[in-house]
């Protein structure tokens, strides 16, 4: 009787153990599946881009401006336009982000105002980019009566700034107190300590944020649709509509012409490669620096 009881208990615990391990195996299998699907998606996107985009790589793409379907043309004006607008956006957005980051890390810290600024900046980080486009359209396009490269750059700057704010604040918080105290002990005023000791010490980290901001805004399309509009001719005038690679891709990808489609794919490959290479450099670089 007693032996029987023990046997039954052993039996039950064995079945429980079996069930627990089954659950574990099932969860493990689902987890592997999830991971593989995510990696497969990235692979599929890259493969599609290379398959369709590589064929259109040529010197003309970089030397000729956009042209009507059937005419020989390239994406040179769009590439240059993208570089100009992204560059200008960073020139506006990065210093503003840097100073806001300094305010949050060094002056505001836990004050009420700083908490609100931090919160709003984080919200802008994920705000729909099309809203920024509409906003700049009403602020800089309607009053001046025409679309312009400058308004596109300002829209992108609003998107770039919160990224720099986030990294600057995070990085400045990593600066050891001893370093600040050393600066103060030498008689340096606080602003010099911040700018020439703290910021300089973490400049690599802040550069990371700036690079990520470049990667983010270089591929943005929605805010440019209503601001710089796109331009099929060569133009460096910031007061006029300006071409950009993402908008050109959008325009070409929706067309029915074979050569435009080809250029859209090649442009897409260029944008993606650029953005991903910046990301890889940043992430490999920061990992190396940390360890």
């Amino acid at each position: 009787m007693k032996a029987n009881n023990t046997l039954m208990r052993a039996d039950r615990s064995a079945s429980l153990l079996w069930r627990r391990h089954l659950c574990d195996k099932l969860a493990t299998a689902m987890s592997w599946l999830g991971m593989l699907i995510v990696v497969f998606m990235l692979g599929s996107i890259l493969w599609t881009l290379f398959k369709n985009g590589l064929a259109g790589m040529s010197v003309h793409l970089f030397t000729m401006s956009m042209a009507a379907p059937g005419q020989p043309g390239g994406l040179a004006n769009a590439i240059v336009g993208s570089i100009i607008q992204t560059g200008l956006a960073i020139l506006i957005g990065a210093p503003a982000g840097l100073m806001t980051g300094i305010y949050l890390a060094e002056y505001g810290t836990t004050s009420r105002l700083a908490r609100i600024v931090r919160f709003v900046s984080d919200m802008l980080l994920s705000a729909p980019s099309i809203l920024i486009g509409l906003f700049i359209y009403m602020m800089l396009v309607v009053p001046f009566g025409h679309f312009s490269g400058l308004s596109g750059a300002v829209a992108l700057a609003i998107l770039a700034m919160p990224i720099v704010v986030r990294t600057t604040e995070d990085m400045l918080r990593l600066v050891p107190v001893a370093m600040r105290e050393a600066g103060i002990a030498l008689g340096a005023p606080k602003w010099r300590v911040i700018l020439f000791i703290c910021v300089r010490a973490v400049r690599a980290g802040i550069m990371t944020g700036v690079l990520l901001a470049i990667a983010r805004v270089a591929g943005e399309t929605a805010p440019l649709l209503f601001t710089s509009l796109g331009n099929s001719e060569w133009s460096l005038d910031l007061g006029r509509p300006m071409a950009s690679l993402p908008v050109a891709i959008y325009q070409y990808a929706g067309s029915a012409y074979q050569d435009w489609m080809q250029q859209a794919w090649t442009g897409a490959l260029l944008v993606t490669l650029g953005v991903l290479i910046i990301n890889i450099v940043v992430r490999v670089g920061t990992r190396g620096g940390r360890s």
Binding site: M41, S44, G219, E220, A264, A268, T272
Partner: peptide
Amino acid sequence: AAVIGMAVQLLAAVPSIIFGMWGFFV
């Protein structure tokens, strides 16, 4: 984990218009 973590972050960095084209044609 480092490699796959990187791949996941790269997927996050792909511009949205690329997702649009990929979605439409694939």
